[in-house]
Design a protein around this nucleic acid. Structure first.
Lengths: 126, 126
DNA sequence: AAATCTAATGCAGTTTAGTTGCAATAACAA
DNA sequence: TTGTTATTGCAACTAAACTGCATTAGATTT
């Protein structure tokens, strides 16, 4: 497990995620940071932060990669098994603070759980 | 709504899905049919079959598009809201014959539900 | 604080899934 | 058999994500 240096770029991305509690796509982050760092750097930092358990990632509706801050996760233990909700109006993606009810899996063992919902968020629904 | 002609290619793809009950990715189908039809044709037929309610599609772990046969769906009514399970050993994707328990959505309205699990399937687990 | 080590970065090029425009072809109806 | 038009193949395109490599900049040691 390589050391992760807290570079300027890493700090920027961490600061970004610590303010807002929504998920962001790699594409959005690349656009947001385009004057501060290279696209490749964004991808690589996101990878590292996921490996460290600081962010979790999942695939959105169009197959894009999304990232959000983990709550109480580490590289060893991942407790972030919750649904993600994308609004079809404003495109925001929220982490829903609920546990996922697993279906009956018979003789299957489980590795990862992705629960992705789309619809209208509370704001766009009012 | 355009007429969908039962061409040779359409029949091939329908026959393929009627034999096996597992899901297949667009990439797998393109590879499988590479001597019989063009990649573009595969994509377009899949699109049409989804529109007609004959297949349903969802996004797999790596953001790839997957397709499986619907059970009792039409272009008007879609009843195929079930989890999908991909084996990390044999890569097969199964449709789990269970309903998905929805979380509490507060003031959100819902459009689509994607529940994707990975792990070891019953066969690879024994 | 200078020298050193190596993780992290930028850049350009590459890969791959999926899409589009258009001319040619093949279902299907008359 | 002819005519209509949905469908196909092809080539070019788009966009997300990845890779190799030379350079830069954190961290560590002296």
């Amino acid at each position: 497990m390589g050391i992760v240096r807290k570079t300027k770029s890493v700090k920027e991305i961490l600061a970004f995620f610590s303010t807002k509690n929504e998920a962001k796509s790699a594409v959005q982050l690349i656009e947001f940071f385009k004057d501060k760092m290279n696209r490749t750097t964004v991808y690589r930092i996101l990878d590292r932060l996921v490996e460290e358990g600081i962010l979790h990632s999942f695939n959105g509706k169009e197959g894009l990669k999304w990232y959000a801050k983990c709550q109480g996760c580490s590289s060893e233990h991942h407790s972030d098994v919750h649904p993600h909700f994308q609004c079809t109006d404003c495109d925001k993606v929220e982490c829903l603070p609920t546990n996922i009810a697993l279906p009956n899996l018979n003789n299957r063992s489980i590795d990862s759980v992705d629960f992705f919902l789309t619809g209208k968020c509370a704001t766009c629904n009012s």
